[in-house]
């Protein structure tokens, strides 16, 4: 309730002006890189080299965006980011879907069908969220190679499902813990089985936490770099890896406008999700994670 907001709020006039001033200053700090990226991506190279990076473009053009999307050289091929963009999409969709479904079922089991050791299992899965992934890179690369999944999108899907399970389970577990057990028990009395109870009773109430989990997983997996860089090469790389290759390649003239356009293209999907679903996400997260 925003009624609670600022119960110790300062109300004197002078300090309030300072407070607003500081907030605006911070807002500028957070917005500046985005602004600079955007402006730079719309300028021709000559203007970038001669002018001030904060200036608005004199003749905005989408040349850099088109080149970043379809013609910039990444490694040996010069077809832009579009192929890698689709790699990321093809990786994210199944990985998010499967890890969310598994997380929901796990959360359901861990709260409504408790058995001895359920806490230990949850703890074990949770710890998996925190490990530095450096500690699994080599074994994972070996296993992917043996499964014939090295440098492939299905391989990355597997990796992201495996290391996303802890988070999705955590979200659903914390959400279902607050779901009335009485309802579940009543359904059991009526003879409803495991899946029927899940399908008819818990799932219809789960929309908020599903949205939260999907957005969280989407953001994390889309933004991943370490796994993409470790387990893929060449054309199979996801977006973040391609972006890094594009930006750090040192052949030819450095086209900062193309770099910035590429960075924005890579950031766009998650930013879009944040802008569109931010509010809903927030509400769901509070319901799921905090209400407990």
């Amino acid at each position: 309730m925003s009624v609670d907001a600022g119960s110790a709020a300062i109300s004197a006039r002078g300090p309030r002006i300072i407070i607003y001033g500081l907030l605006i200053l911070f807002a500028v700090f957070y917005l500046l890189p985005l602004y600079v990226m955007l402006v730079t991506s719309l300028k021709p190279l000559s203007e970038i080299q001669s002018g001030n990076m904060l200036q608005l473009p004199q003749a905005p053009s989408f040349y850099a965006w088109e080149k970043a999307w379809g013609a910039a050289c990444i490694g040996v091929t010069c077809e832009g980011l579009k192929g890698f963009f689709w790699n990321s999409i093809r990786m994210v969709v199944p990985a998010v879907t499967i890890s969310t479904i598994l997380g929901a079922l796990n959360g359901y089991v861990l709260t409504k069908w408790k058995f001895r050791g359920h806490k230990l299992i949850f703890g074990l899965m949770l710890f998996g969220c925190f490990i530095p992934f450096q500690v699994v890179l080599v074994p994972m690369a070996q296993v992917l190679g043996r499964l014939g999944l090295a440098s492939s999108t299905p391989g990355l899907v597997l990796v992201h499902i495996v290391y996303g399970l802890g988070f999705t389970t955590l979200f659903f577990r914390n959400f279902y813990v607050a779901f009335p057990d009485e309802l579940v028990r009543a359904a059991m009395m009526d003879g409803a089985g495991f899946f029927r109870i899940f399908w008819r009773i818990l799932l219809p109430a789960s929309l908020p936490i599903i949205v939260v989990t999907v957005i969280y997983q989407f953001t994390n997996i889309w933004n991943d770099f370490l796994f993409g860089a470790s387990f893929t090469s060449g054309d199979a790389a996801p977006m973040t890896v391609a972006l890094n290759n594009l930006v750090s390649s040192s052949t030819g003239v450095k086209e900062y406008n193309v770099d910035m356009a590429a960075a924005l293209i890579a950031a766009l999907p998650t930013l879009l999700v944040y802008v569109v679903a931010g509010r809903y996400f927030v509400r769901g997260l509070m319901a799921g994670a905090v209400k407990g």
Binding site: F225, M260, A263, A266, T270
Partner: peptide, 9 residues
């Protein structure tokens, strides 16, 4: 919401 790679760039 954005990737560390974008932030770094």
């Amino acid at each position: 919401a954005i990737s560390f790679i974008v932030t770094g760039t």
